[in-house]
Design a protein around this nucleic acid. Structure first.
Lengths: 290, 290
DNA sequence: ATTTATATCTGACTAAAGTCAGATAATGCT
DNA sequence: AGCATTATCTGACTTTAGTCAGATATAAAT
């Protein structure tokens, strides 16, 4: 009852029953769970039939029948894939969109109800983020993204907020050299966001300069995703991007108030160098030759 | 993607798939999930057939058939209940115990694997406790317990540890008036533990004295269970116990370093009184007439 | 002692989920 | 063009889950 494994198992029992309750509420819409799941997958943007099948782990025969039953209900339409007529793509009809919205409303109501019933709202959300990140650690997708995208800007906001908390003197973006978005876009640079499901949980920027090197900027990993080796993965992707852009020398600056960052750089082939800019915040400078 | 509801739903998706994976591993033992669940419920100590049925939410016909199939496999035996021959009690045979242990091992391995794969072990466990408590808040059972039981002693250890953290000068049990267990047992007093699933998450003691009043002692609510109104529930049960014991006057002492406790007392009909003992730790004293 | 209530079981049924062996049609390769 | 590959579909099937109306035996109430 007090050992870690029992605590994990108590958690498992609690969420199993909660998941069961949500499934049960889905049944209330008069459709078997299998069909409801397919409808929701399609609504979420899994349009390719094969993609849905893989996502839900269904047999192709079963999948086919579920699609037919949704078609008979008038909720979806299927047509051949543009480039490959063997594949089929499904899309929601108007009625299908209404029905999908009803399922979404059920899920949202359940989530809101959970939050409303409990005090400690922020603590609960943080706990959920942490656990979801741990559970989906093998499904974290790193993707090159425009630094002006919603995901990227969410990451940057969180990053600045964290610097503000961790620097004694606080942090004001405008005081720092805020790299222009276009320097972190191909072909001058790159910007990579780590997504776990629909939540951005990390980022890194590669900023092109005119000084014969590129800079690594804005490396951030969400608190809920630390300890998963995500920092290393992000850095590796950024370095690879630099290689494909023909960049031979990387530099970065950081602050000794972020010891885990310095540690990461030292352990992945970066060497400390003299200050190479006059930004007021950093007090540590690194370089790596690719 | 950033709003609270989306974060809850991301969590839901993550745990749904984790729960599914565990169920799938259970299927690996060649038995349908329904039968496996019944076997596990019996192994966990749900011996009464009706109890298992309620716990798993099964139809009586289905339950009966699942029991037969487990009997045919030689995993369980059933017999009539001692006091009521209509009811049946099930128990595991030797083979059933082996099979139950195999399921337990699967669950434990899964839990250990989860903990081993992730850093932030303590943070994860705390997050799981928090969420499990929130999800099972309607199923918290308050039960009168012997103050020497494992559950009670676990609560007391946690309680003392928390006082140690919150008092500036620390807390040493031996310095405080450690109430004798027998004063917190019927007929002199009572001790109540709040259980969420198998985890003790709160307690309160009613300690009989020879001074014409009884004392409320050791009111504790686990950090993961705060904000659920559990403190009030525990106090209400303790006061009811006092009433059934014919106690007319209650007193308690507390410390201003625990503001939420003082708040609770004030809001539930307690009034502050003069110091009534020479215990070095408390600096606030309350009384309530029943 | 009779009636009513309770706990479990049995039989007959339906619905849902899942499996598997082809059938069909488009694609890719040589 | 011919052949293997791939994506999906169809039909025939099994298993699992769940429902419901009695049947049976015991217990509790009057």
């Amino acid at each position: 009852m007090l050992d870690p494994v029992s605590r994990v198992r108590r958690f498992n029992r609690a969420v199993t029953s909660a998941v069961g309750a949500l499934d049960h509420s889905f049944l209330g819409r008069g459709r078997p769970l299998g069909a409801a799941r397919v409808l929701n997958a399609i609504g979420q943007g899994c349009s390719d039939v094969g993609e849905v099948r893989d996502y839900l782990g269904l047999d192709s025969g079963l999948m086919s029948r579920l699609l037919r039953s949704l078609e008979d209900e008038g909720l979806i339409e299927t047509q051949a894939h543009q480039d490959d007529a063997r594949r089929r793509v499904a899309s929601l009809t108007r009625a299908g969109k209404r029905e999908f919205a009803a399922y979404e409303a059920l899920s949202n109501t359940q989530a809101e109800g959970f939050l409303a019933r409990n005090a400690q709202r922020e603590a609960l959300l943080a706990a959920m983020d942490l656990i979801a990140s741990a559970l989906t650690r093998d499904r974290i997708a790193l993707a090159e993204t425009d630094p002006r995208s919603d995901e990227a800007r969410y990451c940057l906001r969180e990053y600045y907020a964290e610097l503000g908390r961790r620097f004694k003197q606080g942090f004001d973006v405008s005081l720092s050299r805020d790299p222009d978005a276009k320097d972190m876009r191909r072909p001058r640079g790159s910007f990579v966001v780590a997504m776990s499901d629909t939540l951005p949980i990390g980022c890194v920027g590669l900023k092109g300069t005119d000084h014969g090197y590129a800079e690594i900027k804005r490396l951030w990993v969400a608190p809920s995703a630390r300890g998963l080796g995500l920092g290393k993965r992000l850095m590796a992707v950024a370095e690879n991007a630099a290689r494909t852009l023909g960049i031979a020398l990387l530099r970065l600056d950081t602050n000794s108030a972020l010891p885990e960052a310095g540690q990461l750089y030292r352990s992945t082939g970066w060497r400390e160098i003299q200050r190479f800019n006059d930004d007021p915040y950093p007090d540590l400078f690194f370089e790596k030759r690719l």
